[in-house]
Computed example of a mutant assay.
Amino acid sequence: MTTRWMDSPIGGLRIHAHAGLITAIDFDARVRGTRAADPLLDEAERQLTEYFTGAREDFDLPLASDGTEFQKKVWAELQHIPFGETASYGDIARRLGYEPVISRAVGAANGANPIPIVVPCHRVIGADGTLTGYGGGLDKKRILLALEQPGLF
């Protein structure tokens, strides 16, 4: 496994890669470590930098998908939420063919997303339009949404 630390408008990020796939992105990375030569991490850092500067709306990276079948379905659906838009947990449930009553299970899967930003779990909000939990904290979620649609929150 290789890792890369990068700075961003939401703080330090640590990108993890293994076997040619991005496996995780961690928030609040404080230790900078060495910069391993890795073309995949170079590309991930480039695409994230472009996203943060407004030059990229979608990511094109090979991603690991280690999780339950339900989590994988939710994570795949998150990638269909367009840049600058949001969806509720119930919306995601309906798009997957479930009743909105399983929105809590969708929320749990959303919270277990190991590759935030690239798999845009920040675009999921409460049914009433309010910001709800985010692994990196609501302040980071608000910044990410504001990058995509200024004035939204």
Score class of each variant (00 low, 15 high):
residue 47 Q to G: 05
residue 75 W to S: 02
residue 153 F to A: 13
residue 147 L to E: 01
residue 81 I to A: 07
residue 52 F to L: 06
residue 110 N to D: 10
residue 6 M to L: 03
residue 43 E to T: 07
residue 91 D to C: 07
residue 98 Y to N: 06
residue 47 Q to V: 04
residue 77 E to G: 02
residue 97 G to I: 11
residue 45 E to I: 02
residue 73 K to G: 14
residue 121 C to P: 00
residue 55 A to F: 10
residue 66 D to A: 14
residue 92 I to W: 01
residue 2 T to I: 04
residue 101 V to T: 09
residue 47 Q to N: 06
residue 19 A to T: 14
residue 76 A to N: 14
residue 129 G to T: 07
residue 62 P to C: 14
residue 124 V to W: 02
residue 153 F to T: 04
residue 123 R to A: 10
residue 70 F to I: 05
residue 48 L to V: 08
residue 101 V to M: 04
residue 82 P to R: 15
residue 12 G to P: 05
residue 101 V to H: 06
residue 145 L to R: 10
residue 17 A to F: 00
residue 112 A to I: 00
residue 140 K to P: 08
residue 16 H to G: 13
residue 97 G to M: 12
residue 20 G to V: 12
residue 130 T to K: 13
residue 22 I to T: 12
residue 31 V to Y: 10
residue 145 L to H: 11
residue 36 A to K: 13
residue 7 D to F: 00
residue 61 L to Q: 13
residue 1 M to H: 07
residue 127 A to D: 13
residue 119 V to R: 00
residue 119 V to A: 03
residue 43 E to K: 08
residue 76 A to E: 15
residue 20 G to K: 11
residue 41 L to D: 02
residue 60 D to V: 06
residue 130 T to E: 12
residue 116 P to N: 06
residue 86 T to S: 11
residue 3 T to I: 06
residue 43 E to M: 07
residue 95 R to A: 15
residue 31 V to R: 15
residue 113 N to L: 08
residue 16 H to N: 10
residue 111 G to Q: 07
residue 78 L to Q: 11
residue 73 K to F: 11
residue 37 A to Y: 07
residue 101 V to E: 11
residue 56 R to W: 07
residue 61 L to W: 12
residue 150 P to Y: 09
residue 119 V to M: 06
residue 20 G to F: 13
residue 91 D to P: 02
residue 46 R to L: 14
residue 28 D to R: 11
residue 82 P to N: 15
residue 123 R to C: 11
residue 123 R to V: 05
residue 13 L to C: 05
residue 40 L to T: 05
residue 80 H to W: 14
residue 101 V to G: 07
residue 115 I to D: 02
